[in-house]
Design a protein around this nucleic acid. Sequence first.
DNA 1: TTGTATGCGTTATCAT
DNA 2: ATGATAACGCATACAA
Lengths: 352, 352
Amino acid sequence: MHTVAARAGVSIASASRVLNGVGGSPETIRKVREAAAEVGYVPNAIARSLQSQRTGLVALAVEDIGNPVYVEMMRAIEAVVASSGRQLLVHATGGRIDNETALLRRLANRYVDGMIVSPIRVTDDHLTALTDSPVPVVVVGQLGADAPIDNVRTDSRHGVALAVDHLVATGRRRIGFVNGPLDTVPGAARDAGFRAALDRHGIPLDDELIEVGDFQYAAGRAATERLLARADPDALVCANDLIAVGALHALLVAGRRVPQDVALVGMDDTELARMMFPQLSSVSLGSAERGRRAAELLLQRIADAALPPRREQVPPNLVVRASSAATLPTPRPAAGSAGPPTTHPSSEGVTA
Amino acid sequence: MHTVAARAGVSIASASRVLNGVGGSPETIRKVREAAAEVGYVPNAIARSLQSQRTGLVALAVEDIGNPVYVEMMRAIEAVVASSGRQLLVHATGGRIDNETALLRRLANRYVDGMIVSPIRVTDDHLTALTDSPVPVVVVGQLGADAPIDNVRTDSRHGVALAVDHLVATGRRRIGFVNGPLDTVPGAARDAGFRAALDRHGIPLDDELIEVGDFQYAAGRAATERLLARADPDALVCANDLIAVGALHALLVAGRRVPQDVALVGMDDTELARMMFPQLSSVSLGSAERGRRAAELLLQRIADAALPPRREQVPPNLVVRASSAATLPTPRPAAGSAGPPTTHPSSEGVTA
DNA sequence: TTGTATGCGTTATCAT
DNA sequence: ATGATAACGCATACAA
């Protein structure tokens, strides 16, 4: 900028004005533009931000960007953020909790105008990092009851209940559960939800039918293999869709038919559920909706820091597809046709 | 900082030194630390960066973070970047080319220490934005021959050839191809590769066996449905794994057995290929390796801007799995058992 | 060790 | 409309 001004024979202030499109005589504008083009001037956004106190950037921190549920959340957030002229940056923390607080410490120190964080584990360290953040932060997920932080959550306990209710209603009784780690917030909530739901239906809890692994495909598959080795479920609830896909693979390899032998219900209702064959029933936790709301809360708070902390809740919603259909929708190819040809096994799901 | 210094009764310079851990008498250190804690001081990273000329941030811009191939690439990059004490930020451009250049213009203006970009469409506008970038940029993917930009690529033309060779070698002749948009760099390369490979084997090209859509699941499924409506392939090559998964779904819905009736080969060799049942053969384009190399090139250039532009190439590599196995590995369940039980249909792939 | 003063690249304020 | 100058918040060369 200094160089540009000198080359154009004007003051640095005039150069800045022209480059920002405010003021300047036609002659000055021409000279500055020319000089800028000649030296290939590009503005230093850092310096500009130091002055303007904003960067036009918003960050999203999630556990695992390989999980499609976060992709859907990200897309929803992106849409809102873009409408405010800002750009969205995503960071995958990989579940390393130190990484997450480190990111908060770095980004939140004004590299971005605001952050959306979706932690699956929440420590005190976390909470202080969140509350001490110099820029607005919105949390997607359960948070300590009285944390003064904008927060949008769902009720995954109830989500699991929807799945169990559906399976019981369609005649399943030996319902297994493949969960994520119990020391995570969603893992603990879903475990509680499963136990409560069985209890409500008067079905005795069988620990043999419960398995725990990571919230990932490989873990879901391995956990299901362990479960099948010692028990004989007629239905499986999975704590997310990645696990459900792993479970499906394990079931098919073991020669179980889905849904005839074992009904399968995932959670998050991601694109993955619709990609499988048969398509998977899944409990939607409104990820896109939660993302959208979180982004809106964030933009509001960026505009007005004095807002009181808000908390929003998005209800879960079961989507029934072929993997848990009550009527058997997947006749064996060898057995010939069955049912009207217009209803193929991968037809769209039905919201319950 | 001003406040902290005043409260501690020292100069702003001394406060800065203490807070950075350089110098300071025990007494000063104590006072400053105390004051900082009392006022809840958090450093302004933007101001610090203006001084230090670095942010400790590196960005990755890709088309679609929902594509697992980019997730794998991201993970590889993340590992390298983290080892340099920096943090990785990801941006999904959604294929909007204006978005991509806008991101370049914003982030590259020193919000980050460097960028890795993997564009699927390359325009002149792009190229100038890339070459004019004030911070180092590394491109993953094909680029104009003489662009003076660090670049790591693969040979997807050859990748398609590997798939075709394999299918021909296992007796397939009516080989279909489901590709992405031809106006993208990878789409065009794969189309050329497919035509050349058929030609090399003396198989006449049948346009009925070629379909084009987006590089996504839904498009792959729809394209395959169109293809099956007018032709009867005994094998299908897909331009990426998302398309291949869509194709698999379409095939199964249409009652085709995979691989008995139709052999299926995807591309990118993502986790998705291993998640399917049957597991999908896929041409690895070394995404993780390309990501790793790109990150290393970037770090080197950040350390030394005077380096000459470099170009690296990662060879493709076919991984054969159940979806295109020569011997029929998936006996119909109704037909009873076949083959040793230790070899189940989803066994690990074999590198060719 | 400590404080003073300057610079990092821009934008904004204020005279002119 | 233009130019000099003071911030923005921090780090550092230099002198004390």
